[in-house]
Design a protein around this nucleic acid. Structure first.
Length: 720
DNA sequence: ATAGATGGCATTTTT
DNA sequence: TGCCATCTAT
């Protein structure tokens, strides 16, 4: 037996060893949450449970792998057989074994988000909706709205009313497209990410699902604050309080309301509270002592949280003393920020391994300049979040072959493959697909006369389905066939794309079957392998969840960026940004630096404009962080007071458009007005689109062929 | 019906 | 910047 009592603090021990049917562990940031789950797994296994009766649901596959691995190391034998993964990957595996009745005998295919928006674009065209209306939402936007409605379990109107009221007039059209999309998926045996969860819920309720449910005696759910409604119901179904044969499973949910950062996609913090209603005899165990960060970092974290509207009761504390000051640094501009941070990383690298250092930011594109600086300086880094490499066109091309091997009726993959051949577009693809679906091979061959290579592609795919070699072999064969297409489709940069293909081939070598590999690729999009590399981490805050580093630098802490521009209109969204900042700060173990450039390049104005320091920084008292400003030549100078700008700009995140007194508000006000503006004419430049109002008599106008101009309104003739 | 060009646009976060 | 939608010439 492991020495549980001496390896854990009392709250952790309580959680690890308890025998209650329902436990809610409320785990503050850095309180040893992962450790607790790992030891809990070990405890269950050491007390004789069948590994196959344990289900561990986590937010990322990486997290579950890490936990199982650590449990295995603890026990000195692998924790084999424990079911684990994300809700989505778990749903996939259950649905493969217990497919929904409506599928009949057909295998189903997972739609990735880009497939989904592709289909929606097609349906939109077929339904002839939004033609010639440039204000009509784009396919991607529609896909997002449909998904949000399902995740929050609200109607389209409700979603639009909350998030984008300007699209409300289109609600009936969006609903129509949504219905067509639903039918399309049924007809073609397709499931998108959201379907996985709802279909899982249905299956668990069905008779067949009874067996799936009864298998589990222990259900552990990590990051419970980020589950949505259907996920909470799935947990309840799995717990099986209504089981006829045998006792219900023991459920343990672990979460932290203060770290809820996925409300935007339907996560519901209320699930934490409702857990106690769903499981009446819930035992609540708070983990409060922080083992990760030094006191100065926790001071900042506590300060952030204390200002939140929900005012969380918890306060993080550590028994450790000392630690470096938290620094707020104001570079002159975003450009010098990149250099300053790169330089700082160089300095940190004299004390820490690269993998002990991270730079965090709100959105993927915020790190572009820094990436350039790091490349220039030769600092090895790896970026998480942002565009994933499995979304690169050539990878999707390669996957189109593979998907057709798994499921010959995969319509999106079929179209993609068809479109690789000159002269074949959506219409041709649809025609050929229908012939193939009808199994009318004669007609298909005839119709393919113009595309002999395509027919050969299909033959190759069929051959590999009937007689499948190892996944790696399959990809080598596909690639052999695809390579000439790739050279033709991407003439400028196909050599650089080879690396991604190579990566896929290598990754596939770890899989026993192609369909499992493809499911992993779709569900755990591109953890691009090679974890062993010793790299500095660049990551969105969302992707940094659950991780920690000795030194953490957070960049672009200015209004419009962090908090995101989209969040300031509504207080719920703003509060989520605050929690996001809290998550970001609590990733740091020893050193935390917060960067707020004083100017940021503005694409609209095509010049650098002064940036307003993030309200999260302005709120911090000088006792919890030391402020520095960059002087010419990259010199940092201590500043005692808040930057002047910070003092004069609004403190409340909610702008008052009627009384614009600062540049930030002027920008907001003009943006606000821009919805009503349209086109104008100029004597020399002709017709142009009004981009924004600079002030009372100046407008910024985009003239086709001439570009952006700032023009006195007197010289413009307004169009209706 | 398709390819290719052009113009316009808006830039969260992720399973 | 890079993506989308639309236009235009085949």
């Amino acid at each position: 037996m492991l020495d549980y009592a001496n390896s854990l603090n009392s709250a952790q021990y309580e959680a690890v060893s308890c025998d209650d049917d329902a436990v809610l562990v409320v785990a503050g940031a850095g309180s040893g949450k992962t450790r607790t789950i790992v030891w809990r797994l070990a405890w269950i296994l050491e007390h004789g449970a069948d590994p196959r009766s344990i289900l561990l649901l986590t937010f990322t596959r990486k997290a579950s792998q890490e936990m199982l691995e650590r449990a295995g190391r603890l026990l000195e034998r692998p924790a084999q057989g424990v079911a684990g993964g994300t809700f989505h990957s778990f749903a996939f595996s259950v649905l493969r074994r217990y497919p929904p009745a409506w599928l009949g005998e057909r295998p189903f295919t997972l739609l990735d988000p880009s497939d989904a928006s592709q289909i929606i674009r097609q349906l939109k065209d077929n339904l002839k909706l939004g033609k010639g209306d440039s204000a009509f939402p784009k396919a991607q936007t529609i896909a997002d709205i449909l998904s949000k409605a399902r995740n929050k379990e609200l109607s389209i109107e409700e979603i639009l009313g909350r998030d984008s009221f300007h699209l409300l007039p289109y609600a009936p059209d969006i609903v129509a497209i949504g219905n067509a999309y639903k039918d399309y998926k049924r007809e073609k045996a397709l499931l998108d990410y959201d379907d996985l969860l709802f279909e899982l819920e249905d299956v668990l309720k069905s008779e067949a699902g009874e067996r799936a449910r009864e298998r589990y005696q222990y259900v552990l759910v990590d990051e419970y604050q980020d589950t949505n409604l259907v996920q909470a119901r799935i947990v309840q179904a799995l717990a099986g309080q209504d089981r006829e044969n045998g006792p219900p499973a023991k459920v343990m949910a672990v979460g932290d309301e203060a770290q809820s950062i996925y409300a935007f996609r339907g996560a519901n913090v209320r699930n934490m509270l409702d857990f106690q209603n769903a499981f009446p005899r819930t035992r609540i165990i708070p983990l409060e002592e922080n083992y990760r960060s030094t006191q100065p970092i926790l001071d900042v974290a506590n300060n952030i949280l204390s200002r939140s509207e929900e005012s969380f009761k918890k306060k993080l504390y550590t028994a450790r003393e000392g630690g470096a000051e938290v620094r707020i640094i104001s570079p002159i501009s975003d450009a010098t920020q990149a250099d300053l941070v790169a330089e700082r990383i160089g300095e940190l690298l004299t004390r820490y391994r690269p993998n002990e250092i991270a730079v965090l930011f709100r959105s993927g594109f915020h790190s572009y300049q820094l990436e350039n600086s790091l490349r220039r300086d030769g600092v090895p880094f790896r970026k998480y979040g942002g565009v994933r490499f499995t979304e690169a066109a050539h990878i999707k091309d390669l996957f189109a072959f593979a998907r057709l091997i798994v499921n010959p009726l995969d319509a999106p993959a079929f179209s993609r493959l068809a479109a690789m051949h000159k002269g074949a577009g959506p219409k041709t693809a649809e025609k050929l697909y229908n012939l193939m679906a009808k199994n009318d091979l004669g007609a298909l061959e005839k119709a393919c006369r113009k595309f002999p290579d395509f027919l050969a592609d299909l033959r190759l795919v069929d051959g590999l389905r009937v007689n499948p070699p190892e996944p790696r072999e399959i990809f080598l064969e596909i690639f052999h066939r695809y390579r000439p297409y790739m050279e033709r489709l991407y003439p400028e940069d196909w050599p650089t794309r080879l690396a991604g293909i190579d990566e896929i081939i290598q990754m596939s070598a770890n899989y026993a079957s192609l369909d499992l590999f493809m499911a992993d690729m779709a569900l755990d999009a591109g953890q691009d392998s090679t974890e062993s590399d010793d790299c500095v981490t660049l990551s969105t805050v969302h992707s940094a969840k659950g991780l920690e580093w000795s030194a953490v630098l957070i960049i672009d802490l200015v209004e419009d960026r962090f908090p995101s521009r989209r969040s300031v209109a509504r207080s719920e969204d703003f509060e989520e940004e605050r929690r996001l900042f809290y998550v970001a700060c609590t990733r740091a173990k020893k050193e935390l630096e917060l960067y707020a450039p004083a100017a940021i390049y503005n694409k609209m104005l095509q010049s650098r404009t002064s940036a307003i320091q993030s309200p999260f920084l302005r709120e911090l008292p000088s006792s919890s962080a030391t402020r520095y400003a960059e002087k010419m030549g990259g010199v940092l100078e201590k500043t005692d007071s808040l930057p002047v700008a910070g003092a004069t700009f609004r403190v409340s995140p909610f702008p008052e458009p009627q009384a614009p007194t600062t540049e930030g508000e002027t920008k907001f006000a003009s943006r606000y007005e821009s919805s009503s503006q349209g086109y104008c004419r100029h004597r020399i430049f002709g017709r142009g689109k009004i981009i924004k109002k600079i002030d009372d008599d100046k407008l910024q106008v985009n003239f086709p062929g001439y570009g952006l101009k700032i023009i006195l309104a007197n010289y413009l003739l307004m169009e209706d």
